[in-house]
Simulated assay, not measured.
Amino acid sequence: MTPLFHLAFPVDDLAAARAFYGGVIGCPEGRSSDEWIDFDFHGHQLVAHLAPRGARSSNPVDGHDVPVPHFGLVLDLPEWEALRDRLQAAGTAFVIEPHIRFPGLPGEQATMFLHDPAGNALEFKAFADIGQLFAK
């Protein structure tokens, strides 16, 4: 079996999480309760737990302040472009606008950062050459 990740994270509004992850991002909903919702995040288990917002920070990467903590997916480029277009059509405010990071260098990638409705930072990236995922 290919390893899958399970990520539990805080949200302060389950309805907003459901609308964002289910509606905008397109994740099918799994089990849920009044306190949490499971989402199928491209085959990985993402669990939104009702909880207050916490402190956030950032680290500089390629001239941008990358939010920490964050999580996301590595997609193929056509999927990344389709998601970028859906997010832009939904009026998403990006923390870091969609762009190419490290152009012409090892690890060149398309990337974008945004916050979900509870303030959790998400990154979606794609590589023209997936072999560059861990390139130094």
Rank of each mutant, 00 (worst) to 15 (best):
L87A: 11
A16S: 10
H6P: 01
P67M: 04
L50R: 14
F9R: 09
V24M: 04
A90T: 10
A90F: 03
F39A: 02
G63P: 01
P60M: 13
A15N: 14
G104Q: 09
P98H: 08
D13F: 03
D116Y: 07
H6L: 12
G72S: 09
V68R: 13
A51V: 10
G119W: 04
P78G: 05
A89M: 08
N120G: 02
L50Q: 11
N120C: 00
P10W: 02
V47N: 10
P103Y: 10
D85G: 05
F5N: 12
A17T: 07
L114P: 00
A90L: 07
W80D: 04
R84S: 11
H70V: 06
W36E: 11
E81H: 11
D65Q: 15
G23F: 02
R101I: 03
P117I: 06
R86A: 10
R31V: 15
D40F: 03
E97V: 13
D85Q: 14
G22V: 07
C27E: 01
S33M: 12
P69L: 14
E29V: 13
Y21G: 03
A15G: 14
R53H: 09
H115W: 10
W36G: 05
P10Y: 04
P52M: 02
H115F: 13
G26D: 05
V11P: 02
E108S: 08
A17M: 09
D116G: 11
F102R: 07
L14K: 08
E108T: 08
D13Y: 05
F5R: 15
Y21Q: 03
P98C: 10
P78M: 05
D76S: 06
G63K: 11
A89N: 07
D65E: 15
G23K: 02
N59L: 12
I100A: 11
L14G: 08
E97L: 05
A110G: 10
I37M: 11
E35P: 04
E35A: 15
S58F: 06
G119H: 09
M112R: 01
E35N: 14
F39P: 04
V74Y: 12
A15H: 08
V68W: 06
D38C: 08
L7Q: 15
E79M: 12
W80R: 03
G119C: 09
L77N: 00
A55C: 04
W80S: 02
V66S: 08
F102G: 00
A82W: 15
H115Q: 14
E79P: 01
A55M: 13
R86M: 10
H6T: 04
I100G: 07
A51I: 03
A17G: 08
D38I: 05
P103E: 13
L14Y: 07
L75H: 00
R101N: 13
A89K: 02
A19Q: 11
V74I: 15
L83V: 03
V47W: 00
D13E: 12
H49A: 05
P117W: 00
L73F: 06
A17W: 02
D65M: 15
I25H: 01
V74R: 09
H70G: 09
Q88H: 12
L4Y: 12
G104Y: 12
V24C: 00
S58Q: 06
